[in-house]
Design a protein around this nucleic acid. Structure first.
Length: 570
RNA sequence: GCGCCUGUAGCUCAUCUGGAUAGAGCAUCGGAUUUCUAAUCCGAGGGUAAUAGGUUCGAGUCCUAUCAGGCGCACCA
């Protein structure tokens, strides 16, 4: 419908303006907020009046006069400063119910993203511990965004980048070895700052001890301590042998990854691809990339380290690629990683990062542009933190100290549906408060239940229908009988669903969809309370059934994108 | 100190990329079930959109400054 109006306006503008000096590819038509203004409205007249040396209302009048008759439209008005308001015939409005009943679970899908191949990388938390609630928001956001993009016809690959190389993993390995040491020789306990302390470190150590007994035991571990953690790691690698150290590293990473995958799985998230940082080293990608940067004058040596000239690419300062001790930095593998993404021929590469990484954006953007040559677009979306509350009490967290609520605990406590919905219900660049008590509550405080209940009520009506030995006989012509204000309002809401899908996807804002679902639920509840669906009048009954049935499809389709269930009974 | 994000009802947040009278939920108060699930509905009060300027037909939305909060400024990832 909207497109019909846009076309009408376009034609009209062509007629008025033969020399065509108005940019008319961007005509805005939107649903009216207030129904007294009509059904659709456009601001073209106001927008382009000045270009045409006219006042908006006069220009609007001209446009309207030039619009051809169309039997979908019953009235066109000028209002306010120069809005053009369109009143749509009832029949045309009802046709959306017909369309939804035909499209069913396809309603909302579109092909605006056809031929667009997108890589979306999210969470990518270091495998140095379980996912915690801070990761949850990025997880829900990335997964929902993937669903949205797919709904728009994009080909989407969801990827998790596993940082299984580098210093943090060495520290994890060291942490495990120390616990393992303590398990074997409980008299020889000592503390060392900066190691990972969570219970899971003990679990890994215990597993190694169970399977390998004393194979990795180091006598007098204490003797090899060094104040510098780098040197401490260096010593242990030497004494234990690099291979044995690697083995412990592998076991630890594997253990933690298994845990991470389990958490993601109960959160309803599955990835298409797990990309290992270590693979960039073993297949020489890292080396090649450094070479390439070297040859193209993007690097220099200083103080024994190799530096990346990121400042000239928009960064605050230059960054180290290869440290003085010849270890690579995180940045250097990350550049190789992004080059790999480019090589895989994606039109868009989306990274979802925690907002604490914003300082990292410009350097990776700079590096990306060196390699992509405009072939592929990098989009970095920052997700703000979520503060966890239990009622009024703030829950504090710190990974290193091991004092945190894991994502698994959260999902188990409040459920997958509420967890996902709450994470998604806010604009991602907004700080948010996540109240566990609220998410757990099953009354009107909780929008998840509110929405599910609306859906369950629709299902209930159809159950009643069966029990009363009645049938849903759909007939398009009965739709004319839907004359109540609430019914028209629901129809408009249903009509706007595909726009929400396009909008929330192109703006990367899933919260538009959660808002929409709540609004639709509200309309359904109001309607349910005011009007009876299962009534004597057969034609009206079937018209109403058709209406709520199409609402049910929209609940189903949207909930699938959000990743929550829609129970038939509650 | 520099950079990024944010500031809307008592609280949590929307506002469809600049549009018409800034909207929801919670909380508060008052109502609604012999009828498809009251996990619901209806109504009421509640606002100088942090502050001050600017841009234009029109600003919560864009620009500047100030104030307040969060985050970042590693040869960590």
């Amino acid at each position: 419908m909207k497109n019909i109006i846009i076309d009408l306006i376009k034609e009209s503008l062509y007629k008025i303006n033969k020399n065509d000096d108005i940019a008319i590819d961007n005509i805005e038509v939107s649903l009216c907020k207030n129904k007294k203004f009509g059904d659709f409205s456009s601001n073209v007249a106001m927008k382009y009046a000045s270009q045409n040396n006219e006042n908006p209302r006069d220009f609007a009048k001209k446009i309207i006069n030039a619009i051809e008759d169309n039997n979908n439209i019953i009235k066109i008005e000028i209002a306010g400063p120069g809005f053009i308001n369109f009143f749509i015939s009832k029949k045309t409005q009802f046709s959306i119910v017909d369309k939804i009943l035909e499209d069913k679970n396809e309603y909302g899908k579109n092909n605006s993203g056809e031929n667009s191949k997108i890589l979306i990388e999210f969470v990518s938390a270091n495998p140095t511990g379980p996912l915690h609630v801070g990761h949850g928001r990025g997880a829900a956001f990335g997964d929902c965004l993937s669903n949205l993009l797919s709904e728009n016809g994009c080909e989407v690959v969801k990827e998790y980048y596993v940082n299984d190389a580098g210093k943090q993993i060495d520290i994890l390995t060291l942490s495990v070895l120390q616990r393992y040491h303590e398990l074997i020789n409980s008299d020889d306990k000592f503390s060392y700052e900066g190691l990972y302390k969570g219970d899971y470190v003990w679990d890994i150590a215990a597993e190694i001890h169970r399977n390998y007994k004393l194979d990795y035991f180091i006598e007098d571990l204490k003797k090899h301590i060094n104040n510098s953690i780098d040197l401490y790691i260096f010593n242990i690698k030497n004494i234990l042998s690099v291979n044995k150290f690697l083995k412990i590293k592998e076991i630890s990473v594997e253990y933690i990854l298994k845990d991470i995958k389990k958490t993601l799985s109960i959160s309803g998230i599955d990835y298409n691809s797990w990309f290992l940082e270590s693979s960039l080293i073993s297949d020489n990608s890292l080396e090649n990339i450094i070479d390439h940067l070297d040859k193209n004058n993007h690097t220099y040596n200083k103080e024994g380290a190799l530096w990346f000239k990121s400042k000239e690419l928009g960064d605050e300062k230059d960054r180290v690629l290869i440290k003085e001790n010849k270890d690579h930095t995180y940045l250097s593998t990350d550049i190789a990683y992004h080059n790999n993404k480019i090589a895989r021929n994606f039109n868009k590469v989306i990274n979802i990062w925690g907002a604490d990484h914003h300082g990292y954006v410009s350097r990776i953007n700079g590096a990306f542009n060196i390699f992509s040559n405009g072939k592929s677009e990098l989009i970095i979306l920052l997700v703000q933190f979520a503060n966890l509350y239990r009622g009024d009490e703030k829950v504090s967290m710190s990974t290193r100290s091991g004092d945190f609520v894991t994502l698994e605990q959260l999902v188990k406590e409040v459920g997958k549906d509420a967890t996902r919905f709450f994470y998604l219900a806010r604009k991602s660049d907004q700080h948010m408060d996540f109240d566990i008590e609220l998410a757990k509550s099953n009354d009107s405080n909780n929008p998840v239940y509110y929405i599910q209940y609306a859906h369950a009520r629709i299902c209930s009506i159809f159950r009643q229908l069966d029990e009363n030995k009645m049938h849903f006989d759909y007939n398009k012509n009965y739709l004319d009988l839907l004359v109540e204000e609430e019914e028209i309002s629901i129809i408009k809401k249903l009509y706007s669903y595909p726009d929400i899908i396009i909008n929330s996807s192109s703006k990367y804002e899933p919260h538009l969809l959660t808002n929409y679902m709540r609004e639709l639920a509200q309309e359904i509840h109001s309607y349910y309370n005011k009007y009876q669906v299962l009534i004597e009048n057969e034609k009206l009954r079937n018209a109403r059934l058709a209406l709520i049935k199409s609402a049910k499809y929209v609940f189903e389709n949207s909930s699938k994108i959000i990743g929550i269930n829609m129970p038939e009974k509650m």
